[in-house]
């Protein structure tokens, strides 16, 4: 099983990297950019198992380690 976890700063939190990238894009002449948010993703290769159970485990790992819920949101995507 292959899962991809996306982590990015919450909407309510200022994202200085995203802001810098937006500035750079504008300098390069790309107009009309409303906002840029930066994030990261993790590719996880998991041993096969019950999808629901694996999902719960991964969700709990996201909250504990992969994302910091104080500032970050995360999203899990299952790749088949």
């Amino acid at each position: 099983m292959h899962a991809r976890v996306f982590v990015s700063l919450k909407r309510s939190v200022l994202d200085p990297q995203g802001k810098a990238v937006r500035g750079a894009l504008e300098t390069l002449g790309l107009k009309g950019i409303e906002d840029v948010r930066q994030g990261k993703f993790f590719d996880l290769e998991l041993a096969d198992g019950d999808p629901a159970e694996r999902g719960r485990e991964l969700d709990s790992l996201c909250q504990k380690l992969l994302a910091n819920p104080v500032i970050e949101d995360y999203r899990i995507e299952w790749v088949t």
Partner: peptide, 17 residues
């Protein structure tokens, strides 16, 4: 300490990056 929850809040990158 923030990550461990012993203190509230979190750290972001310096705004100057």
């Amino acid at each position: 300490l923030l990550e461990a929850g012993l203190l509230p809040g979190a750290m972001l990158r310096n705004r100057t990056l």
